[in-house]
Write a protein that binds this DNA or RNA. Structure first.
Length: 218
DNA sequence: GACCAGGCACATC
DNA sequence: GATGTGCATGGT
């Protein structure tokens, strides 16, 4: 099993090359993007983040103090803007209260405890929590998203409709980076693998009309 | 005009 | 525990 996951990684990497994820300039920007991109096209998120940058609002306390209506209108392009404005605020409240708005302080926490804390924040579920852990805080967790599940179920690694943890465990327990035992954490590899799965998903493993004939995994 | 995008919370059974 | 629904914009 793990041989196949390794093989898929090798194929994707040689076909697409390094993805240089997450597409953001700072860890804080990663977190804001992770919340804004929930069920949303990344291009729409970039516009929203561009607005926040334009007015120099992309800092924890500044953003937290912004009135709901103003924040919602600035992130309008990302869709679900009312609910996302609320979710950003609930994360910022947590981030400021417990870590003084400091990524450095937050990074000192253990992966397990940070994950538990993040999941208690309203608006942060397993994928957003893991994206924050991996891409903003450099913690060794595998991020599972809709593309990951679709690709893995179409290739019969998991049943259709498999849960988040089940899918994540497949990678965390079985994927063995070169020269390491299965289950050993590898941040860089987890980073690259998830980014490659998203790339494959966007270009070939489409929901309705997958381009299986041209797929690099074929 | 329909379909889709790097989810999540909440209601209901 | 499983299933259904609201949230919303912008690109194809």
């Amino acid at each position: 099993m793990d041989r196949n996951l390794n093989l898929i990684y090798q194929k994707l990497y040689s076909y697409f090359g390094p993805q240089h994820w997450w597409p953001a300039r700072t860890p804080f920007e990663v977190i804001i993007g992770a919340i804004l991109t929930q069920n949303t096209n990344w291009l729409n998120v970039e516009k929203a983040i561009g607005n926040l940058k334009k007015y120099k609002l992309l800092q924890p306390v500044t953003l937290y103090k912004l009135p709901h209506k103003r924040l919602a209108s600035l992130i309008r392009s990302a869709g679900y803007y009312n609910i996302k404005a609320k979710r950003l605020k609930s994360f910022l409240k947590f981030f400021i209260k417990y870590y003084n708005g400091s990524i450095k302080k937050m990074s000192k926490g253990s992966t397990i405890s940070l994950r538990q804390q993040l999941l208690l924040v309203n608006g942060i579920g397993p994928e957003t929590a893991d994206s924050i852990l991996l891409y903003a805080l450099d913690k060794p967790v595998f991020v599972v998203d809709a593309y990951t599940k679709r690709i893995l179920s179409r290739h019969r690694f998991i049943p259709e409709g498999a849960g988040y943890d089940e899918t994540q465990n497949l990678f965390m327990n079985n994927f063995s980076p070169k020269g390491r035992p299965a289950g050993s954490p590898n941040i860089r590899l987890f980073n690259e693998y998830h980014a490659l799965l998203v790339k494959l998903g966007k270009e070939f493993c489409l929901k309705r009309r997958p381009k299986c004939e041209m797929c690099p995994l074929k």
